[in-house]
Each structure stands twice: as C-alpha cells, then as structure tokens.
Design a protein around this nucleic acid. Structure first.
Lengths: 347, 347
DNA sequence: TTGTAGGCGTTATCAT
DNA sequence: ATGATAACGCCTACAA
C-alpha cells in the first residue's frame, strides 16, 4: 500500500501518541508496566502508521538479534553440495520452525576447514545461536565450542564423548533394520556402501554389522566400501567395484543418492534389482520413490528434526538444560528390495 | 583459540593503539585519510586482538547491512516445497556468490499470499536488497514494488511488461528444443505436461507449440495438461490421464520432477520409455541422471544464474542501471528420448 | 593526518 | 504508570 517507503521512527510515534519514547517502547513490548489502555492505544497507532521497530537498533541496545545462524559445513566433498536434497529439506523445516517463533535465519556455507566458525558466527553478534548441519569431521572443534559456552546445536550422530547438543536419527537401528530386511529377503552376501569417516555413516554401518553377526553372516571386509556421499563418486566406485567381479546379492547404502548411483551401475552390468541384487537406501528422500525400481529406504523424520533443533537451541539460549535427541527411523519397503512373494507390502 | 568469548570493542582497540576511535574506524576501512603506517599498525593490532567490527552497530550508523534477503514464495503448492532440489541448488549458488562478496544471506520462506513481502523485508532494514526466487503468480505485485524503487531482483521468466529485473532461462527455446528433439526421434503425438499459470512454464509451452507448428503437427488441446509441480500431483494426474486411454508417443514435461512422475505412471501402464513414449524433462537436476531410463532434459545454468542474480542486485543497489538476463539452456540427451539408432549420443 | 563530538533508533536505569 | 537520560558500538561531519 505505502507507495513511498516511509520510515517511521519511534520518536515520531511517541509524538503522535503524546507520550515518551520509553512508553512507546514498553507498550509495544506489551510491558505490564504500562496501563492496558495506553498499551492498546499505542499499539493501534503503531499499526495504523505501519510502524515496525528497527531490529538493528533494537539489537544494538538489547543484545538480542532474534536471528539464528544455520551453518552448513561443506568439507571434503563429503556431501556433494548445498544442493544435496537432504540438507535442503532439513533446512526448509528449520526455516519453518524459526519463522513460526519470529526468528530470522542467517544462512552460511562453510567451505574451509576452519574449526571455529561457530564462535565466529556468535562473536559477530549477528545471531543469538547457531545450528550446525552435520558435525562432519569436526567433533573435537565442536566439543571445544561447547566448552566455551557457545549456544549451538548440531544435526548429526550422537557420540559418546560429546559435550554439545545433537539431534539426529537412530542411525544404528537404521543400519540394522536395513540389513535385517535384506536378510529376510534371502540376501546372504550384503555389501555396505558408505564413507564411515562420517559419524552418521559409521553408526549405520555398525547396525549393519550387528545384523550380520546376529544371523551369523560374514561381512567380508571387501564388502564394506568407502563411498563418498557425492553422487558421481559413488557411481564410479560402484562401477569399478562391480567390474572387479565382486559377488553380492544385497547392498545397504548410506544414502539414497548412493543407492541410486549403485543401481545405475548395477543396471549397466546387467544385474537386475532386486532379483540379482537387492538395494536399500537411507534418508527417505522423495526422489527415492522415482528410482526404478522404486527404492526401499529408511525415512528420517526431518520435519521433527527441524523442530527439535530449533526448540533445543532456543531453550539452551534461554538458559534451560537441554538433552540430545535421537529420532526413530522408519523402513519404507519398495520394489528395490522385495524378492519374496511379499506377505504384505508398504507403499 | 580464545577460550572466553572476549568481545573487544573499537574503543578498547583505540586505547591499545593510542589513537582515537575515529582513526581506528578509518584505518579498518582502509581510508586513505590515515597514513599507511598507522593503518597497517592498527590493522595488525586489530587482527592480533581478534577484533571484529560489530555489524549491528555499524549497520545502525551507516544504514548498510551487507546482507541480502532471499525470499522463497511458496504459494499455491506450485513448487512442492523448499525441499525442491531445483530451488535449493540455485540457493546454494546464490549463497556462494554472496559469501564471495562478503555479504550475508537472510533466508525467508514466504507462505502466505501477502503481496508485499519485498517491501516488508526492505523496510525492516535488515537487508540492503532482496532476491525473489520465482515470480510465481506475483507479477503485478512485483511491478509495484519496482515502481516504489525497492532494490530487488527476481529469478524467473522475463515478461513483456515487467518493470523489475529478472534473471532466468530461455524457457521458450527450451520448450522448442525439447519438442523438436522428440519430433526428430519420430514422435508425432506429443503431450505437454505443466502448469501454464507459472510464467516459466507458459514460455516452455509456447516453445513446444512453435515446434509443433513448424512441423505441421497438431497439438490437440487435450494433450496439454495442467500438472502441478508437486511430484505427487503430477504422478496422479499422469496416471489418470493414461487410464483415460490417451494415445501419445512423446511427453515434454515442464520439470524433471514431472517427467519422472510421468515415467513412473507410464511404467505402471506397461508403456516402455522411450519405445512407446519418449520423455524430455526440464531443469537438468542431478537426479535426472538416476532416473531409469536416464532422463533427457534441458539443463539450466544455475551456477551462472546465482552469480548474475547477485551481481545485478548489488549493481542495482550501487545505483547502476541493470538489465534483465536470459540464459541459454542446453539439451542433454539421455536414454529416455532416444528411439533412433543414434548417430551420436551425449552422455 | 588525526581528534572531537554528535547521532543512528532502541532499550534500560533511575527517577518521579 | 510514565518520563528523562544514558548507553549500545560505530561512523562521519567538522574542527584542528
């Protein structure tokens, strides 16, 4: 509506209302110090004049920014890029949760291996707290930051000696579920595809190992291959692996992307999925549905994850004690892994 | 390294350096007013003390935030969500371009149909400019914002009567290329899948129509189906369409997501791709490679798009005149559309 | 070439 | 219940 970008200030408002700036400030903050009546009146005038407090000035004085920085470390090509649909879906949910609470989101990609982006972000005073997406290889640095009392939470795997707050999926159970499912489907030589330097992946592999052990199946070392998250790398490695004559009948992949890359490589080697090799992914991305055959996967509850990350961070900022969370994952069975006349079948 | 989050202020620094605050301010800004020597000395002291200017205070005084707001309108379920890999890849490139120039990125999802988020963002004074991702249905509102002199650029289709700056792909040529390619492959009954209310899609369809006209092929009205961008909706519509007994031998889809949804529906109807129906997508997402068969698509140069959006916006903020840009798209031929013994074949 | 002083728009403290 | 006044940390005329 306003054609010119008229910038009303608090002083203006005070004049119009015939009160002091202090009163306006308090009224807009709904302070009980101000009489109900005056409060209402001032708020109405403010609304009518299209006034908004200048958040910059407010921040300077109050030292509160109502802004959260989201850090995406992109080290070592472990995840392919910000375009990774997985990160991005999580980011979307975080954005929703923050918006709901009246917080802004400052997005920062962190390329370098610099260990102290968290403290950097915080001392810049542009954000009240930080969400780190993926602890990646920075466990130690994060522990230090936590020791320094910085306000941040991390999306990732819960580790034993961690001093920071995490929200993440139950990767161990996920790996176990995936593997057990393949065993149920008759697979006996199951490979794990994933880069176990990443804590999440290491936990998934641990679940994989446990399932194999439980069924007394060997996990020949050569069946565990470090595959980077990047789609192309995964494809290349899977291909050369198959070319080397590896005999397998099942693959547990550390991500949907890796799984789909592997399926592409399998197809080129004339191996049928799931008849010759059954495949399970991890993440539950929408795109897994469009793989062919549609990909069995472990769905992570990213909506809830985003919510929890925000809640915990704000609680922590508010000085409350906060514990880490591990969210259950859900096995979504699709055609890529079903080799038996299925008794029942999930969508 | 610093264990406690010691917050040095400019006054402190001035004391340590034995100069006035003003001198420090100028020295850090590399002002030629200050003698080279003093400048260097102060900058070194600043670096050693781990000082950073408080951007909040700086903004308040200078009215410059060095921050750009990125707005993602999510109206009418036209794109499925922020998790849309397409938006997100673009966002990543924008983030890179901004970071490179020392700008921060404030991310905001806009849910409602509120027409004036641009002016909202700007009058809040938290950002120097705004990038709107997808003009969606808000052409008119954007024109108004431009008339009001707001600093923003839009990712989207270039429209005739637009008064704002856009960066976008040459959607018309894209639609034309896609369709011509299918015609070359022997297709004669080609459907267009896409929601033409979205300007980008309308342009793609226009290219589709032109290619058909050029080859004197009918585009029976019933072959143009409005399909929402959302993956599920596209799948449902494609399915019911096929169930209705539609006879087609080619599909030009307005996005890779729609194309993949369509392929899933085709598979369920025992129609082979590309033998029975050839398919071309649009976007050039990595995931198109993993479709089966791999999806022919039109790649948009999102890296360049992100760069240009940022450059143009900063130029515009700097008061320079800026024109809109239309970027070429590239046909990536993959198996989903190759029906002839290919003379040559792109990867 | 450097210093002094005032103000950016708020909020917090201390009065009244 | 409200008002004066002083910061918050920085930048920029203006003065020296």
């Amino acid at each position: 509506m306003p054609k010119t970008i008229a910038v009303i200030t608090m002083a203006d408002l005070a004049k119009r209302a015939g009160v002091s700036e202090a009163t306006v400030s308090r009224a807009l903050a709904d302070s009980p110090l101000i009489a109900q009546k005056t409060r209402k009146r001032i708020q109405e005038i403010a609304a009518r004049s299209g006034y908004r407090v200048n958040p910059v000035a407010s921040s300077l004085r109050s030292r509160i920014t109502r802004t959260i920085a989201v850090l995406i470390p992109l080290q070592h090509e472990i995840r392919q890029s910000v375009s990774d649909p997985f990160f991005m879906e999580l980011l979307g949910h975080i954005a929703d949760a923050l918006t709901e609470r009246g917080y802004s989101l400052l997005l920062a990609k962190i390329d370098g291996g610099s260990p102290d982006w968290v403290s950097e972000s915080l001392r810049a005073r542009r954000a009240d707290g930080v969400i780190v997406i993926g602890q990646s290889l920075h466990h130690a640095a994060l522990n230090e930051a936590a020791a320094a009392g910085l306000k941040f939470v991390v999306w990732g795997q819960k580790l034993d000696d961690q001093r920071y707050i995490t929200v993440g999926s139950d990767n161990l159970s996920g790996g176990y579920l995936a593997t057990s499912h393949l065993i149920d489907q008759g697979c006996r030589k199951i490979a794990f595809f994933g880069d176990t330097r990443v804590p999440e992946v290491a936990a998934r592999r641990e679940g994989y190992v446990r399932a194999l052990e439980q069924h007394r199946l060997d996990q020949a070392p050569r069946l565990e291959i470090a595959v980077h998250f990047g789609a192309d790398a995964a494809y290349q490695e899977a291909k050369s692996l198959l070319a080397s004559g590896l005999q397998i009948d099942g693959i547990v992949a550390a991500s949907d992307g890796i799984a789909m890359s592997a399926m592409r490589a399998l197809a080129e080697h004339k191996l049928r999925v799931p008849q010759d090799v059954a495949v399970v992914g991890f993440d539950g991305l929408p795109m897994a549905m469009f793989a062919s055959p549609p990909l069995t996967t472990l769905r992570q509850d990213l909506a809830k994850s985003g919510q929890l990350l925000v809640e915990k961070l704000l609680d922590s900022i508010a000085g409350r004690d906060v514990a880490s969370s591990m969210l259950p994952v859900e096995l979504i069975v699709r055609a890529s892994s079903v080799r038996l006349p299925a008794p029942r079948k999930a969508k």
